[in-house]
């Protein structure tokens, strides 16, 4: 007979990461950081199901990336915390890279990485899967300039 006590003693050692609270705090409280660009590898609830759906949906026409020879494909959008997020897929060094950006931002890619053009300083972007060098520019009435903060 399987002992409940032994089972509970054994599997009580199986625990979630102690950082769970901190990561969730970030996801639920940080829609935008003013004048700070945050780039993190996020795994968001919507994104997991989005990616599962995206592989079945197929890609839309490429945007922008063809100028640099690397196709960037818009996949789909979703709304999170009142903000619309666009999901793009590209391929760098043979690896798929997925980038989520504030809706309206433009995404380009080349062999060295991904470039995101935001509309304002409060914009945010995150890559969901894959590793890539991401550079962010802000396009406003002052012209186009690199985002003021370094990615985390």
């Amino acid at each position: 007979m399987l002992e409940t006590e032994l089972f509970q003693k054994t599997f009580s050692k199986l625990r979630a990461s102690p950082d769970t609270g901190k990561e969730l705090d970030f996801m639920t409280n940080t829609k935008r950081q003013p004048k700070k660009f945050i780039l993190r590898k996020l795994v968001i609830a919507a994104a997991v199901s989005v990616l599962a759906a995206a592989t079945a949906l197929g890609a839309n026409a490429a945007t922008g990336g063809e100028l640099f020879g690397t196709v960037v494909t818009y996949l789909r959008s979703w709304t999170e915390n009142g903000a619309t997020v666009d999901l793009y897929e590209t391929e760098i060094d043979g690896e798929k890279v997925y980038v989520a950006v504030d809706s309206g931002a433009e995404v380009e890619a080349n062999e060295s990485g991904v470039t995101v053009y935001m509309k304002d300083e409060d914009g945010a972007a995150a890559y969901l899967k894959g590793e890539a060098e991401v550079t962010t520019y802000i396009t406003d009435e002052g012209g186009t300039h690199e985002a003021s903060s370094q990615p985390e």
């Binding site: 769970t20 969730l24 996801m27 639920t28 795994v43 997991v48």
Partner: peptide, 8 residues
């Protein structure tokens, strides 16, 4: 990841 997804 599932922990985060569920809690979100």
């Amino acid at each position: 990841d599932i922990v985060q997804n569920v809690l979100l």
